[in-house]
Design a protein around this nucleic acid. Structure first.
Lengths: 168, 168
DNA sequence: CACCTATCTGAACGATGTCAACATATCTTT
DNA sequence: AAAGATATGTTGACATCGTTCAGATAGGTG
């Protein structure tokens, strides 16, 4: 294995491009918004040719899904942390709702990408369900937090609250 | 005009292109999905050159907003109709929710476009608020139906229900 | 009639997603 | 270690897209 050298060195083989591409995607998302998130831009940001990502992702959609998945992971982590910081189930629920809204408010571009990626996956029916496990993951974390199915309404309110916070 | 070898004569000046473009957009939306909804495709479907729409719409975004606005109008009409068919406020609310969900379920592509157009408008802050009056229009129709601000929660539940119905 | 304005066409530009052919680095096998 | 196999990256090309610009064409107004 090549020594994972510094940026100045171009080992031709980047070591872990998939990771770098996802990170580049997130950087673009934060700095230039969702509209600027193109395959070529991500490759440019990562310092590779426009065709390089195709050895790690099937599609542009596939890359976006990877970025979105990272977002879901972080959301899930934030939600889990929020849950663990409240002993009672009821307080945990509101804590989780707050964490959800905060995440959407602090990372609007990422949240939008997560949302879009989920929509496209459902609409086109391409991927079976592997990548949107993030959404269910968060949901299960909530239910695991002691939410009755009836109390899921609270989550849904939190979700739409997050949407409002993210997009006006 | 040099020749008229088509049955339906295109008088070079297409009586009402804006209308035709929006209709073409909706046709593409229904037949080929949101991914196929490009400016050029709409112009193609309407039988005009790719540059023609620019005399009626500022942007591609502007055209999409027009399509979305039509969608909001129809949603508003459906909601108003649903409201008028229930005498009591409580029943009207649930009626409206059903109408909302049905609309999203029956026109998923349109609904998605409406949603996206609203998101982009908020995110980029381009248009002041002229075109998203559709959303507020529907909302006001609901409040007008006798909804306390507290009961708006019901509407929000209906909204997220519609989202679920539309995208899985 | 001439003029003006709105509308449409045609060709062009840059950017994008994607692919095929080729180059180079790493891994495996002997 | 030599030699192939495999993974990863580059170049170049193609079709499409959004958009603009110079000209053609109509309808309306003096």
């Amino acid at each position: 294995m090549a020594h994972a050298h510094e940026v100045s060195d171009r080992p031709y083989h980047h070591g872990d491009l998939s990771r770098a591409l996802v990170q580049a995607g997130r950087r673009i998302l934060e700095n230039e918004g969702p509209a600027a998130l193109s395959l070529r831009a991500v490759a440019r940001e990562a310092g590779v040719s426009p065709a390089a990502p195709y050895h790690h992702f099937k599609d542009k959609c596939d890359l976006m899904n990877a970025v979105a998945k990272e977002g879901w992971m972080e959301l899930g982590a934030a939600v889990a942390k929020a849950r663990s910081q409240a002993p009672e189930a009821r307080a945990a629920m509101t804590n989780i709702g707050v964490a959800y809204v905060c995440f959407a408010r602090d990372n609007p571009a990422l949240y939008r990408t997560m949302y879009d990626s989920a929509c496209d996956r459902e609409t086109m029916g391409d991927h079976p369900k592997e990548a949107d496990s993030g959404w269910r993951h968060v949901r299960e974390a909530l239910i695991d937090a002691g939410a009755d199915p009836a109390d899921e309404r609270e989550l849904e309110l939190a979700t739409i609250g997050a949407w409002c916070a993210a997009h006006g």
